[in-house]
Design a protein around this nucleic acid. Structure first.
Lengths: 205, 205
DNA sequence: CGCAAAGCTGAAAGTCGGTTCAAGTTCGCG
DNA sequence: CGCGAACTTGAACCGACTTTCAGCTTTGCG
């Protein structure tokens, strides 16, 4: 959450001074809060500028519009989420271990950053292309990971991309239920049980 | 989609004549279209009344507000979705067969009624309680079905509710990808492959 | 029929919040 | 310093959309 801002500012509106960069950072953080708490439509530019401690007009020095800012935020948060999971997975001994730590990290992340989860999901109805972009990127990486593991003989044969969608859907809903709605089970335990389902299967043996 | 309207009309505003009931039905169908195509915030009451072929004021004869109507629609559609899947699953020989036909039915349903999918998902950001209600009901039924199958020895031991969330999440995302976004695989085939993952597991044997 | 209740109409009120802009302030370089 | 560029300010504009309401039409029952 410290790297907001690379992709964020509209072309031709980037700040030139340190003061400007600081203001942009304040605006982005305020916007993440405002959008996360109130949702896109309830969120008001004045709410953002008030939180940031700047005047209304300052917003338009750096952003074209409310929607453009929102899109920038979605991009940043998509990146942050994927980076966080990738970091957690790094160094896992095998694919099933990676699934487990990745899922635990994802659930813990939504717990710590609920506003992030909300902004990404709401983008489905505000900036659908950004939403698709997010999941297409996620699936791409996931699919490649599965394909590699399959090639190494770590997991059973099967359709990589469809599996990726299935596993991501599972993760998102477990994140919502156990990360956002109720904290009645630890992320690691949720991940253990879910990955047990996915690795061993429902069929009785 | 023919049973819109039971829960839909606000207390004290129910129509008393046949003419009134017909108008309510027209409004509900128009609203499902308008909300489905444009989303809650873009949707306009005038859009709904125009589609329904009635005057603006007529809307307020039967509904308190835009949001009340939306909630009613979510309730109806939640019910319709669950009823459709339950119907498809009825008579399945065992749990894994039920999983398969249920998932195929769900994906086919989102394909045929994309507006329904959208309205339910958008309710997360417009009427969160209705959204939770929807998935809590879904999980409840699912969990009980899994518990019964487990008791009958049809599937392996495991946590019913968490499994229900995982499987529903999977279904929703597969519905989005293969029912809404691209129709490059038949619902039955998607279901076959996904249920194969879930029943056999990722682990190599 | 006749007449009360139910239903319908659409102009207008009221509100709200995104966006603009002209004027003022601060910054940083020569 | 001094001056132009960068930055900040907030009142005002603006369009859009929900909701209201007083008057008119239709319905259905005795």
């Amino acid at each position: 959450m410290n790297d907001l801002g690379q992709t964020a500012v509209s072309a031709g509106k980037a700040p030139r001074t340190e003061r400007g960069r600081k203001t942009v950072r304040k605006l982005l953080e305020a916007a993440a809060q405002e959008f996360g708490e109130r949702g896109y439509h309830e969120a008001a530019i004045t709410g953002i500028t008030t939180r940031a401690g700047v005047a209304l007009g300052t917003f338009y020095t750096y952003f074209e519009s409310k929607e453009e800012l929102f899109r920038a935020l979605v991009r940043d948060m998509s990146h942050a989420t994927r980076a966080h999971v990738a970091e957690a997975v790094r160094g896992a001994p095998d694919r099933l271990a990676a699934e487990r730590t990745g899922l635990a990290a994802f659930i813990a992340f939504t717990r710590q950053h609920p506003e992030l989860y909300r902004i990404i999901e709401e983008s489905q109805f505000v900036a659908e292309d950004a939403y698709r972009e997010h999941y297409l990127s996620f699936v791409e990486g996931y699919r490649d990971g599965l394909a590699a593991a399959r090639a190494r003989g770590e997991i059973a044969e099967g359709p990589d991309e469809l599996r990726a969608w299935a596993l991501i859907g599972m993760s998102v809903f477990l994140g919502m239920r156990y990360g956002l709605w109720r904290h009645d089970m630890e992320p690691a335990e949720v991940a253990d049980r879910a990955i047990d389902l996915v690795s061993e299967g429902l069929r009785k043996r």
